[in-house]
Amino acid sequence: MALSAEESSRLTGLLDEHAERITNRWVELLAASLRGRLSQAELRRQVQELHHAMIEAARSGGFDLESESAGELRAVLAELSRGRARQGFTATETATSVYALKDVMLEVLETDTTDARTLRDYVAFSSLVDQMGLFTFESFVRTRESLIADQAEQLLELSTPVVKIWEGVVAVPLVGTLDSARAQVVMERLLQTLVDTSSPYAIIDITGVPAVDTQVAQHILKTVVAARLMGADCIISGIRPQIAQTIVALGIEFGDIATKASLADALRHVLRLTGVEAARRQPRRES
């Protein structure tokens, strides 16, 4: 709800006339609510930017947050929200930074005016602050969602490493649930590593996968087929008894794909395929 021209004029006058008092009291309230998590200098800078943007918006076209003249005010509120989201503050703490202005303005109105307009001005100004708080909350949520999406992508990258075991052999140790998004990342990273290393063999270890269902098996099979198109043979390791029983019960066929019970078995299998025999340590003879 936009303020009337008369209300905007009176409140702009109050913001301008009591600028220092409003700023100091606003910073004081925020410092108490945030319990020292931001410095006084940083809080003062943020409050002064908001205070200035509010006055400029009012002078340009009245207190209407949705108007074109409030573009700077919206930008300042959005920047405040993004900064607080990145610094780990909650949405409530962020919105409180705006809502604290209500208490400040009530104190100013009570001491500056004594007529019936005080209540009307405060109600009108509270409505504006509510809009600002809502805008701040929405900006905070969007930033948090973006941060969570970025972090999820980074975790996905870290959770699907492709390790070069030795020349010509790479391994993909899978841990946790294998869904469609993660399976796509596994396939892309494995294929890229096969190209970069020119490796003819790849081991896909599912020891850390808690359960294998039809969907997980399909993801693995697609990865194996894609690797074969790149000229590499895949060995699947980590087939525990419970997983083997599940695969049989589901009627999943791995065809001619080599499967091994453990990563060690898979490594020995690759050694045989490459013609390399593991050196065995001979026991020392006692003299």
Rank of each mutant, 00 (worst) to 15 (best):
E20Y: 06
P241T: 08
Q48D: 11
V129P: 10
D121V: 12
A41D: 08
R25I: 00
V212G: 11
G83Y: 04
E20P: 04
L14C: 06
G61L: 08
A32R: 11
R44Q: 12
R21T: 02
R35W: 01
V209H: 06
V225L: 09
T94K: 00
A264Q: 05
R284N: 15
V163S: 08
A57D: 05
R189V: 08
R74Q: 13
L271Q: 11
R240N: 13
A261E: 13
L38F: 12
T111R: 11
D64I: 03
D115P: 06
V185T: 05
V170T: 07
S237M: 09
L30K: 07
E138K: 08
M230N: 04
S39E: 14
G208Q: 09
V175T: 06
A5T: 15
L101P: 04
V276C: 12
R284I: 13
T143Q: 03
E110Y: 05
G88N: 05
S287C: 13
F254K: 04
L271Y: 04
R142D: 12
A116N: 10
E93F: 02
T12L: 05
D115A: 04
D233S: 11
P210H: 11
L15Y: 09
A278E: 01
V123C: 06
D205F: 03
D265L: 01
I55Y: 02
F63M: 03
L273Y: 07
E28K: 04
E6C: 02
L43N: 02
E110N: 11
A57I: 03
S199I: 00
K102W: 15
A41K: 04
F125V: 15
Y201F: 03
G275F: 00
V186F: 06
Q151M: 00
L80M: 14
R281L: 10
V108H: 08
A100M: 10
I243V: 15
D265F: 08
L106A: 12
L147I: 14
R10V: 06
L191P: 04
T23A: 10
E153A: 00
A183N: 03
E286P: 14
I165S: 07
E277H: 00
Q245P: 06
S9T: 09
V170R: 00
A183I: 09
S39P: 15
G88S: 00
M105D: 13
F137H: 07
T207L: 09
E145H: 12
L106Y: 13
K102A: 09
V248R: 06
F135R: 00
A183K: 01
